[in-house]
Amino acid sequence: MRSYNFIFSGIIIILALTFYFWGNAFSADAGQWPQFFAITMLLLSVLLIVDTVIHPDREKETDEENKEIKPRIYDHKVFASVALLILYIFIMERIGFLLTTPFFLALLLWFIQYRQKGKLIAVSVGTTIGITVVFQFLLGVPIPQGLLENWF
């Protein structure tokens, strides 16, 4: 967690400085509040760095065998899901939820190692139809229609 805390603090400091200097462009009334909290966030990040140096084991987590559990942000399944999701949202915006979602769900399930083909298709198609029927027709909640706009 030590190195992650340093990286996290570094990113937050950059973010805080961005908010602070960007706030200089606002009228005095509008800028003071966010600038105060930008400085606060910056100071807290510095404090986190100092605290991590003084107490490196504060957040140490161990498993049943007393081995340290290290945080793992990067996971290829999550990374693939987010990448697929970005592509999906771009395409869905043009084509619509009903036509895009079964393919997206099938691909996503495949990427995250779901290999039972029959169930994969059933879950992809079933979820899409289920969400459409329940939300569009029963609850009257709009879902993105894309090419099918005005069809139902």
Binding site: S81, L85, T101, L105, L108, L109, I112, Q113, Y114, V123, T127, T128, I131
Partner: peptide, 10 residues
């Protein structure tokens, strides 16, 4: 594996 994608869709 099933729950994650369904929650994402919702």
């Amino acid at each position: 594996v099933i729950l994650g994608p369904i929650i994402l869709m919702l």
